[in-house]
Amino acid sequence: MIKIEDIHKSFGRTKVLNGVSLEVKQGELVALVGGSGSGKSVLLKHIAGLLRPDSGFIYINGTEITGLNKRQLELVRKEFGFLFQGGALFDSLTLFENVAFPLTEKLRLPKEEVTQRVLHYLDLVGLSGSEEKYPSQVSGGMIKRAALARSLITEPKIMLFDEPTTGLDPQMSLSILNLIRSVHDRLNLTGIIVTHAIPSVFKFTNRILMIYEGRIYFDGSPEEFKRSEEPIIRRFLGEEVLD
């Protein structure tokens, strides 16, 4: 469970989050949308404890995390999978080694088991055959998918996906959303997907959050979102349709 109470965050003079509150229940998969630069990535990083809010509270499964030190945070982070907007794969490692990294370094699993799991997950994201390539040798979409495999392979309880489908062709984004959905259903994980894949995402979640001017501007079902008469939402949807 993720619960956020009135967080504020500024970088220098730019106010990015201006009183965000929200709650995502155990097992819920929600989509977070909003214009570019509206603070979606910043919000996700707060939930993961990578950024600290100027004020406000964040609870992960009941534990308040904004006051925790590094060691205490580590315990909470065990539960997390995080997909960075840019993938954040390690340049010096192959795709295989990247996906294997959390298993070999953190969980210290035996070699055969690592190989088997990595190959399985690479297959799930459609990357069989590219195991030995380095991030610099593959496309942005492939980096995204390898990063998704890396974040799912530890079978986390809470998953934060920052734009898993951006940069993928429509068919690939559909299959990635399907994959996220099926992993979600299998592990009953709690998840937030930041996405621009509108309208396809409407089929994959039953709750949409929209961030606007540093607050949660909309919180409701995809149907309500689509039907909304709010000019700001209409304009946002219009933009997305034009895309």
Binding site: K45, L50, K78, F82, F84, A88, F90, D91, P102, E105
Partner: peptide, 17 residues
């Protein structure tokens, strides 16, 4: 520096390493 701006350092931290 490149690892920092491409969030690779954050990724290490998030794995609890």
């Amino acid at each position: 520096g490149i690892m920092r701006i491409s969030e690779q350092i954050d990724a290490i931290e998030l794995m609890g390493l």
